[in-house]
Design a protein around this nucleic acid. Structure first.
Lengths: 242, 242
DNA sequence: TCAAAAGTGTTGGCCATACACCCATGA
DNA sequence: TCATGGGTGTATGGCCAACACTTTTGA
């Protein structure tokens, strides 16, 4: 292993999770206090990320960041865009931060997103790492606001054609959870009866003989997504059909 | 301007064009003859590309490559993926080539594709640059086979939801040209009457009072794509409608 | 027995599909 | 006048959208 880093190449990770209040993204606190009145205080939030090591692949680097946060290996990371403009980093805070880290001002960032299920918790959670609702993001460093928006756009477009939605819900999910996930991500309202009809025609959404319990209401049936079945059926639901 | 290059960062360009025989990609010949029996002869094809200069953005670098090939500025470039695995470059030929160029073995390549209209010609065309049908690619250097496939996959998925198709046809096109473009790219057959009906419902596909001429057959009506109109209407033709 | 959410059917209209012949032109 | 591709209409069935009440459970 070569542990030296490639000093102009990093990976940033947009970790997305659906909560009651909508889509949330995981951010890491970034503070730098130089005790010098003339320098700006750095005290804001950034996406978790890492420099790429000489012997690491891009995807491996992303996986490593994801694993540090969640404690698990994830297969469903998504590389969606790369940011490398010359003037990408220009605010005083960002330049100060970069210099304090001994990195290069012209840094290429390959951005990934990871969707984690709504019932999963992070490995450890302290003050330096926090979920933020996409609609009320704090002050962000670098161009991370842009990166988060791009990730969200990518999710919204892929969720129509790819089976992304199943990453947002627990492995065993109820149909109402699935519907709510669509509604929340796409900001639409769907008719429950019609949604169920549509879903019941999909062989890869398989009903289990199992119900939710512990709630003071009618327990709902659980379903699973079968990736195997999905990969064997051809989806034919788009503009240019057949 | 800082004309030094960032020696581990390049941009590769997949230039796509529709011809009678299907989708074609533009490749550049790569030869290296060292007059040494022990070294492999490099004599194959690669995607056109360029190292990123210190003062150039990624997109600018791609534009520059596109402009050198076509003589025009293009707005519709598409960044679709970045390749930066540690072992991405491993064949003897590729290593030899990299060394002969004074570049780094671990090179990050940001890949773009550009669609050019079927009636456009390149600036200049010599033996070192050539169109190849996607179905019969020659021996390719690096991981460029992979990159081309990824570009094609991206085109196929975006063409369903985005107005990409209009980049493939001339500015003034006939409906049959449009239909053929869909058929060729997606490898499907469409019913002509139904296609026309669908198209006639799209306000952004505007008929002109102009006809093709010079052909020994009934001249066909010409249409244009209005990006302005398109951006004002909401497409509602997907799985989760409304 | 109440509260809370799960689950269920029917109808009307629109849109996708399938299909075959006449039209306009230049040579 | 012929060859070539351009252009057109209708009928059928399936799917989407709209809409309100009953069921099941734990407390």
């Amino acid at each position: 292993m070569d542990f030296r880093k490639i000093d102009n190449l990093s990976v940033d990770c947009v970790v997305l999770k659906l909560e009651e209040n909508g889509l949330n993204v995981l951010l890491r606190k970034r503070t730098l206090n130089l005790y010098n009145e003339n320098l700006p205080m750095v005290d804001d939030w950034v996406l978790p990320g890492h420099y790429v090591l000489k012997s690491n692949n891009l995807g491996e680097t992303a996986n490593r960041v994801f694993k540090e946060l969640t404690g698990e290996n994830h297969l469903n990371r998504n590389q969606f865009r790369t940011y490398g403009n010359a003037a990408r980093i220009k605010s005083d805070k960002d330049l100060l931060w970069i210099r304090s880290r001994g990195a290069k001002v012209r840094t290429i960032t390959v951005a990934y997103y990871l969707i984690i299920a709504s019932n999963k918790d992070l490995l450890k959670m302290d003050d330096s790492i926090k979920w933020f609702n996409l609609k009320s993001l704090p002050q962000l460093g670098f161009d991370h606001h842009q990166i988060i928006n791009d990730a969200y756009d990518d999710v919204k477009s892929k969720i129509i054609t790819d089976p992304l939605i199943f990453d947002f819900v627990p492995i065993k999910f109820t149909l109402n959870e699935l519907q709510l996930a669509f509604e929340s991500i796409l900001d639409v309202e769907l008719d429950n009866r019609n949604f169920r009809k549509k879903v019941s025609g999909k062989p890869y959404i398989v009903p289990l003989d199992e119900k939710q319990k512990g709630l003071s209401k009618k327990p709902s049936r659980l379903y699973m997504f079968s990736r195997d079945v999905y990969s064997q059926v051809v989806e034919t639901d788009y503009i240019i059909n057949k």
